[in-house]
């Protein structure tokens, strides 16, 4: 989804049980979503430590999205409920520090929602592309 030729780098943390399978389904169904979305598989969305999100930005991500099972459907019963609280607070804090709130997102994508996965990624990539490069959480040492 290039805006003026610029393609954002997106890091998507996907839970093993729902969202990663959703991404798989999107692929099997030949649904298009940007190749610059890098998926990192995690056992559960609650494995995503706030440091992972910051680290992704440091290493050059322009947007970070966390995908997990729908609330109530967590493979581990309640993991995504904790994700929901943590990320709500973290994203709010990033916004408080003046970092564009559109660069971070949490979406619930089930294993059956290949189409939702592709649509989510397309939409997120477009949003991030319109913001341009991540400047406020970049680490110049990693930009070489």
């Amino acid at each position: 989804m290039p805006v003026n030729g610029y393609k954002p780098l997106i890091v998507a943390f996907c839970c093993n049980w729902c969202s990663y399978a959703g991404a798989d389904l999107a692929g099997n169904n030949r649904l298009n979503y940007p190749a610059d979305v890098k998926i990192i598989r995690v056992p559960c969305s609650c494995r995503v430590n706030p440091m992972f999100v910051l680290r992704a930005f440091q290493r050059g991500a322009d947007g970070v999205i966390i995908c997990g099972c729908h609330p109530g459907d967590c493979h581990y019963t309640s993991g995504n409920y904790f994700t929901r609280r943590r990320m709500a607070l973290l994203f709010s804090m990033l916004d408080y520090l003046g970092i564009e709130r559109e660069r971070t997102r949490v979406e619930w994508v089930s294993a059956a929602e290949g189409a939702k996965f592709a649509a989510t990624m397309n939409d997120f990539a477009e949003t991030v592309a319109s913001l341009g490069e991540n400047k406020r959480l970049e680490d110049l040492r990693c930009k070489k």
């Binding site: 609330p71 409920y81 904790f82 929901r84 609280r85 709500a88 971070t104």
Partner: peptide, 11 residues
Amino acid sequence: LVDYDTGDLEP
């Protein structure tokens, strides 16, 4: 942060 409610606000 070690607690939750099923009706919590979405991020």
